[in-house]
Design a protein around this nucleic acid. Structure first.
Length: 463
DNA sequence: ATGTCC
């Protein structure tokens, strides 16, 4: 904008002297910086005259909303009692994670909650936390890595291939997977997700499209991985009619990269501003789904979830081609996401932050560690857990503690004992940093049944 | 988790 647009310009147009001025200035300064001031004022006038015509518009929609339904931001008080909840494997869970859930259960929008047996402290809702709310979505109830998920492809290949072709499989992982914050594929990989309208209708998402394009099919950092291993099917009554036994498997764990991270950051910021809460629970700020921002977050979150899936698709498609085998089956699930689900007969927003969906018959993957098996599970549809299960073994030691405690050579020794090769991986991802997956599984027998296991053999991670 | 400070 040539000359900066000010509040008094909007008042001159006839804007009411309420929050709509702040909303308008915020939107215009964020998204219309390069537009001519006259042009912006002309459009603002049209919005002022007929706000209902601009509902749903990426930029003007929020301004129209503030004109149609002016709200004063008020501080919410917590309820004095907790919504109903269940904790699974509570002896293994640190108190702070429980307190975080208890706080969340006192939000005026909370309906029910649960804590999974791998739970530990997080921002806002604990990791391993599940929370059902009424028409409200909590960005920190989903987490920063929106759509972080697992994907397992099973190939009709004997596991002797892992030994015989070990070098070739290692080479596939080092050359065809991309890790870390800066690494991308040399050639952009296309995907139908890039034709989604959210990339044009939501201004923030539009700005992230190019980054998302570059990062498609990359894995990121932290605990994300791509690995080959042994799939052992134990349930003879499985849905694919696979004979119980051992097969080659490809397992991936990653999320929505920069796209989801920026969406999470943006809407967390908006939620914090419009949903003031007592200081100790401010990170649980929510967005009302009937508002412009709440609806927009919902669309952006769903896009990020689909993008995360597209990233796994890209990885599995490319690596499958290199192996040259046709998959027998593919199992996948989000573990950082929110869904609209019925809870006690009422539609709720069910947040799962580090929890595997475990509705009746739903298949999922619960990874163990590099040296412990992960589990292929089938949900039992336990309603007290809000149809959820753990998303892994859970951390026993923080990243910082790992750096104090473990050396590279001590980790290599353990890996060697288990016949596991790791390409990359820092001391903070030491297998000893994780809880015993067998305990965790024992603590959620009511939530999932075991279909099979996945034992990692060749792992690639960041660094 | 993320070009880890709006």
């Amino acid at each position: 904008m040539g000359k900066k647009l000010r509040g008094k310009d909007l008042i001159k147009l006839g804007f009411p002297k309420n929050n709509s001025i702040n909303v308008a200035l915020g939107q215009i300064n964020r998204y219309y910086k390069k537009k001519k001031k006259e042009q912006v004022l002309q459009e603002a006038k049209e919005v002022l005259l007929k706000p209902e015509l601009f509902k749903g518009d990426g930029v003007w929609g929020k301004i129209a909303e503030s004109l149609l339904t002016p709200v004063t931001v008020k501080k919410h008080a917590l309820n004095t009692t907790r919504a109903p909840f269940m904790i699974y494997g509570e002896d293994e869970i640190d108190d702070q994670a429980k307190y975080q859930l208890y706080d969340a259960l006192k939000l005026p929008v909370s309906v029910a909650g649960a804590l999974m047996p791998d739970a530990h402290t997080g921002y806002g809702l604990p990791i391993g936390g599940v929370l059902a709310t009424n028409n409200a979505v909590i960005p920190y109830g989903v987490g920063v890595d929106i759509g972080c998920r697992m994907c397992l492809t099973v190939y009709p290949v004997a596991v002797s291939y892992l030994k015989g072709k070990r070098y070739r499989l290692e080479k596939i992982l080092s050359e065809h997977t991309k890790f870390g914050m800066y690494e991308t594929h040399k050639i952009k990989h296309d995907h139908e997700i890039f034709s989604r309208e959210e990339f044009t209708t939501i201004p923030l998402v539009k700005k992230l499209k190019d980054k998302a394009y570059k990062q498609l099919g990359t894995s990121g950092s932290g605990n994300h991985f791509v690995e080959f291993g042994i799939v052992t099917i134990t349930d003879a009554e499985n849905e694919w009619g696979i004979k119980p036994g051992d097969y080659l498997g490809l397992l991936t764990h990653s999320g929505s990269r920069g796209l989801g991270a920026n969406i999470a950051k943006h809407y967390t910021h908006l939620a914090t501003k419009q949903c003031p809460l007592p200081k100790h629970v401010q990170q649980l700020a929510w967005l009302d789904l009937s508002t412009h921002d709440g609806h927009e977050y919902w669309l952006a979150m769903n896009l990020a979830g689909d993008y995360a899936q597209a990233c796994h698709d890209d990885i599995h498609k490319r690596i499958g081609k290199l192996i040259g085998a046709k998959p027998i089956c593919k199992i996948e699930n989000h573990h950082n996401f929110a869904w609209k689900k019925m809870v006690n007969g009422v539609e709720c927003i069910v947040h799962r932050k580090g929890a595997t969906p475990a509705g009746k018959g739903a298949l999922g993957i619960i990874p163990g560690s590099m040296t412990a098996p992960g589990y292929i599970v089938r949900g039992r549809g336990n309603s007290e857990s809000l149809h959820s299960a753990s998303h892994g073994a859970g951390r026993l030691l923080s990243r910082r503690k790992c750096k104090e405690k473990f050396t590279k050579s001590a980790i290599n020794k353990v890996l060697k004992e288990h016949g596991v090769t790791v390409l990359g991986g820092g001391v903070d991802e030491a297998p000893m940093a994780y809880k015993n997956i067998h305990n965790v599984m024992a603590n959620q027998k009511e939530l999932v049944e075991v279909v099979g296991t996945f034992t990692p053999k060749i792992v690639r991670m960041d660094r």
